[in-house]
Simulated assay, not measured.
Amino acid sequence: MTVNWFPGHMLKARREIQENAKVVDMVIEVVDARAPLSTTNPDLPHLVRGKPIIKVLNKADLADERETRRFISFFQKNGIGAVAADSLRGKGLPDVVRAVERVYAPLAKTLLEKRQRVRPARIMIAGLPNVGKSSFLNSLAGKRVVKTGAVPGVTRGRQWIRIKEGIELLDTPGVMWPKVENDEQGTKLALLAVVGEKAYEDEAVACYLISVLKHRKPEMLKERYRLESWDGEPGELLEEIGGKRGFFLRGGTVDLNKTARAVLEDFRKGGLGRLTLDRLPDEVNS
């Protein structure tokens, strides 16, 4: 599924990120731990002019723990700092602070050598819509400082937040890149509600999720939807799920749209269990 969802306000957000990059020391990119590669913005390194980037794999409570550890190792081996976090419960936040301090240490040392005052580390928070960026910032700051919501693009405005004596954060709006060319990545972004509802069809995305579960986590289908067999095609299984949930239209046919929305909601809220959609590059190519 090719996603072409780029509202006008996102062009303004890209410019804002470019301007903010001039006044920060590093960037924290918040990604969804269920798809750390698919929710990484490929344009970000260019937009921030090569500033160091720390990846925060947010919503780690919804992702497979083993896979999250593997992705963190993958990023670190490629010279990118990475930390897992569960912003709603405040887990992983001390690790984020330590990662920031490690990245900032060389600059602080340079300032001292020049006999200049070591100012707080200035950090820009970036990330795609709906990866939990605002919730992460609120949790890190220890108070509600930005509006949060489940609708892509809800965060607005610009503000500095000091979270401790040596760290200042600058929030930015969630921003997509202009066009997602890879079909599977686009479907994952839809599944994660990163793109707006008008950019995809619920039934197609639900069928993709069922296909993933069939091949990688069939026990989730069995436990959540009481399916005795998952040998059928994703569309057939979606219909069976709708029948078991009692989602019928007049005439007795299954309401596939309602069923698809219910399946997507189950995944997004963790009702299916912990699941990571992305795979490491060596696994995809093997």
Rank of each mutant, 00 (worst) to 15 (best):
L62G: 05
S38G: 03
D64K: 05
R98D: 09
V96Y: 01
E219T: 04
I163L: 07
A190N: 03
F136G: 04
S139G: 15
A126G: 00
I17T: 01
I167L: 09
L62Q: 06
I161L: 13
G273F: 02
D278I: 06
P178F: 10
Y208I: 06
G132M: 11
D64N: 12
L37V: 02
I80A: 01
K244W: 06
G127N: 04
R261K: 15
A260I: 08
K179D: 03
K55G: 01
L221E: 01
A35S: 12
L11C: 00
I125V: 13
V175H: 10
A190C: 10
A21P: 07
D32C: 09
R49W: 03
P281W: 11
V97R: 12
L209D: 01
V30W: 03
L47R: 06
D231N: 13
A99L: 01
K91R: 15
Q185E: 14
R245M: 15
L238R: 09
N78R: 14
V146E: 12
L238Q: 10
L189V: 07
R162H: 06
Y208C: 04
G235T: 02
P42Y: 03
D266K: 08
N58G: 10
G270S: 11
R261C: 07
D64Q: 02
F75V: 03
I210E: 05
K222P: 00
E113L: 13
V56S: 01
P281Y: 11
G50P: 09
S135N: 12
D61G: 05
S135L: 11
M26H: 03
K55L: 12
L237W: 05
N4E: 14
A150R: 12
R119C: 00
I210Q: 03
G243F: 03
E228R: 14
L169W: 03
K198Y: 08
D25Q: 08
T155L: 08
R144S: 14
L221P: 02
K217I: 00
T68Y: 05
P52V: 04
R117S: 06
R119D: 07
K133F: 09
I167K: 05
A13Q: 03
L137S: 07
V212A: 01
K269R: 15
A60P: 06
G81M: 03
E233L: 11
Q76R: 15
L169G: 02
G79D: 01
F71D: 01
V100R: 00
L93H: 07
G246D: 09
S139L: 10
N257A: 06
A204W: 02
E65L: 09
S211T: 12
L213I: 00
A193S: 15
D282Q: 15
A33F: 02
G273C: 05
G153N: 08
L227G: 01
